[in-house]
Write a protein that binds this DNA or RNA. Structure first.
Length: 282
DNA sequence: CCCCAGTCCTGCGGGC
DNA sequence: TGCCCGCAGGACTGGG
């Protein structure tokens, strides 16, 4: 399940395409149920074939391929949104029915970018600057989790009456945190996931911000978490290794690594599994 | 404002 | 051994 570290790894995996010229754009053939690709492939081709990739960016859990113009001010933005099972691949991408979209690029280290998605919940969008602001601007997507300051983090969360774990998943409040890393950061910060945001004291927010940064940056170093279902992999189709660092995620009924006494508990919040330790997190 | 359930979709593992 | 069902959750939507 790609969250910030996984999507950042995808971004870095195709950074070598910057400076290259797009020579081919295609939906992959033999698809049963195509994913959402907008606008039409014909229109995408008209707008980006022959154009240069000027940057590769990330907005929350989406990879943004900037096309035309300059690195600071591109003409068009190709959004690759993996959702649950999407992968952004560069080398020898599989040619099975889950391959959804691909581009060929000339004159750069990366000569191919593929979008593979087993479940097909992801999407590909080509946006201009106005559409980008409307769909993925600050009113829709909060500050990035690895860029937000401790002060702004506190300001954004402390007034809410929601449970902290649920609020962390709200991409309008903060961008990039998903179900897995939310459990992990609350564990290291020793905060109970069901505690209301407005009950948590400022020093705890400072600690949560610190642990969030630690975990996300460490997970990027490990190229993300590849779970036992094997859904996420990096741009070279290789597993990440941060799954070996998990403290609580998917460890229900196992002994907590921190206190070595209590078992990790699994609860459901907002229809999603949360893992935590009753002794360590209050 | 916030919450909740439903929607999309495939592969898997538990249970019988 | 084989089959069925429920679950996994990111983002969005509609109703309360």
């Amino acid at each position: 399940m790609p969250e910030l570290p996984e999507v950042e790894t995808m971004r870095r995996g195709i950074l070598g395409a910057v400076g290259g010229k797009i020579t081919l754009v295609e939906k992959t053939r033999c698809l049963k149920k195509p994913i959402s690709i907008t606008p039409s492939i014909a229109q995408i081709r008209r707008r980006i074939i022959g154009k240069r990739i000027t940057n590769v960016d990330r907005i929350g859990k989406r990879v943004v391929v900037c096309v035309g113009g300059t690195a600071e001010k591109a003409n068009d933005f190709l959004i690759l949104e993996p959702r649950m099972t999407g992968l952004v691949l560069v080398a020898n991408p599989p040619t099975d029915e889950h391959m959804r979209f691909r581009m060929e690029i000339a004159g750069s280290d990366v000569d191919e970018i593929g979008f593979w998605d087993r479940r097909g919940l992801g999407n590909v969008r080509l946006l201009n600057q106005t559409e980008l602001n409307e769909q993925l601007g600050p009113s829709k997507i909060g500050p990035d989790a690895i860029k937000i300051s401790a002060g702004e983090f506190f300001e954004r969360f402390s007034a809410s009456g929601r449970e902290i774990k649920v609020a962390l998943l709200d991409q309008k409040l903060i961008a990039g945190v998903g179900n897995l890393y939310a459990s992990e950061m609350l564990h290291l910060a020793k905060i109970h996931p069901q505690r209301k945001c407005n009950e948590i004291k400022k020093p705890s927010y400072t600690k949560l911000h610190e642990k969030m940064l630690d975990i996300l940056l460490d997970a990027i170093k490990h190229e993300g978490s590849t779970l036992s279902d094997g859904t996420y992999r990096n741009a070279l189709n290789k597993d990440g290794s941060y799954q070996n660092m998990h403290q609580v995620y998917d460890r229900a009924d196992e002994i907590c690594f921190t206190c070595k006494k209590n078992k990790v508990i699994r609860v459901v919040q907002a229809q999603r599994a949360t893992f935590f330790c009753r002794r360590c997190q209050r």
